[in-house]
Design a protein around this nucleic acid. Sequence first.
DNA 1: GTGAAAGCGCTAACAC
DNA 2: GTGTTAGCGCTTTCAC
Lengths: 309, 309
Amino acid sequence: VVRADKRERVLEAMERLGYVANTQARSLAGGRAQVIGLLVHDLGAAYTGEILRGVDEELQTLDFDLMLYTTHRVRAKESRYVSMLTSGMIDGLLLLLPLDPGAYLKALRERRFPYVVIDHQGFDDFSPTVTATNWQGAFEATTYLLNLGHRRIGFIAGSPDLSSAQERFEGYKAALESQSIAFEPELVAAGHFRHTDGYRAALTLLNLSRPPTAIFAANDASASGAVEAIRSRGLSIPDDISIVGFDDVPQAAAMYPPLTTVRQPIAAMGLAAARLLYKYIHDPALPTERIQLSTELIVRGSTGPVQMR
Amino acid sequence: VVRADKRERVLEAMERLGYVANTQARSLAGGRAQVIGLLVHDLGAAYTGEILRGVDEELQTLDFDLMLYTTHRVRAKESRYVSMLTSGMIDGLLLLLPLDPGAYLKALRERRFPYVVIDHQGFDDFSPTVTATNWQGAFEATTYLLNLGHRRIGFIAGSPDLSSAQERFEGYKAALESQSIAFEPELVAAGHFRHTDGYRAALTLLNLSRPPTAIFAANDASASGAVEAIRSRGLSIPDDISIVGFDDVPQAAAMYPPLTTVRQPIAAMGLAAARLLYKYIHDPALPTERIQLSTELIVRGSTGPVQMR
DNA sequence: GTGAAAGCGCTAACAC
DNA sequence: GTGTTAGCGCTTTCAC
């Protein structure tokens, strides 16, 4: 029997001496580590930073810590890292835009290790995911350009491995089709969501014998690359050519001209993913949940009506 | 006695079965956790992202993992987090721009816990630090504006608690003095390194009865806020007013007009700090080392000669 | 050199 | 409810 006042005194002493439970020992003994892992492949991107912010914010309220891993876009590192987590360092794993999830997710699932995939889906039907309405966003953006009178609309694609990139491409094509505009493969330039990809892709499009009057880039980073390319050709935005991005990263509004783009609630996606992961950590038997957040077209200064020739 | 071929077979089997040592157990038993912590207070800033990139890059080669903590600019959280590290989760700690290091660094030092402070110094004389030549950078930037003919140069200050902000302010004043220009307190506007601070500060400066013809902002984030403020007044950069930042974050070049700024090797600072921390982890008795990386003025389009009236 | 045993600081399971 | 014990997976020490 421990008297209440004694308990008080012990608690007070713990506080005074600055006692903190040893997390390592706790998790070794079978308790919670109170740590989740986040695996990203490109720390440099503003998009990644926004996800990080959202994850961090939720973890704060959940009282979890964060271990951050980067694959630096090296596919092979993904599975290596994922298997390392087996060692019990983390209670759950957040995968941002995994390049090759098929390789290890089945194993994770069999082991009932909690994880959530952010912004990528369709590679299996059992993984919990958090995504945005990519198709709709792309459809809306393309339709907006069509309504401005543009008929030749270039598309700068994102990494073809990622469902978000595929869906945006499909949305673009669907919008053209819905207004009976023929889809022209020459108006699609490859890319991987990076600034330099956008730069190169835009140059390709501008070099066409009949260049587009508007370009829809699969994300803001490649849109900013496209802006740079267009400007390097002495063309003006939006007078000579309109440009639309996707994401609405913080600097999209600070660009010149401010970028018209499809807003994706990036930080909210990170937050939702962290919250969902938390649920799985507490009950790994929970059914697979798939959260989809909606996008919204933000019209700024980089788009305008098609010009007379 | 274990024969070499047997050893080989065991090793091969470990590999095949995907054995990974349990990090928790290892560190509990007195080994290395192979994890370092990074404490930042603002995940949203591009500056933080760059530091993160540098730290991550070095950790990659050092084969260390990273735990990321955010204080969200709450001073009190700093010491709470720092004491949590005592629990043995990490082998060393990187502190980015700590707001109140005096409160806990002495304890860390007494405990011989390895740590390195990034971009802040002068609060004690025993903490290992990695900084940049803030004073020189500010001196050079201000001198450049003076050489363009500007005589009324506004200064948007950074967080007064941080030595980097103080040194940039001192460099600014020293440059004025070196050319016998009187320092005018009304040309200094307070700020905390954030976009909104720069916006507000620039408005204050523009509202002066004799507004400045050039503004030197203590970092790029506040410079971009200033740009927004200046543009909202219908003024043009650099024709009506020149603007210089500090940091050269990736988006500085993408701004319009591209920002003249003092380049700080931000990622390199993170990298150097991680490397230095690694040395301390392996030998806590190493003497205090202070690394200072140099800055460089990058002239872009946001600055020009003072205009005739 | 190798093998056995102790123990890091906790949690869980058990007896009281 | 409370006190005790075993044991998580390693590293270290010590005996061989």
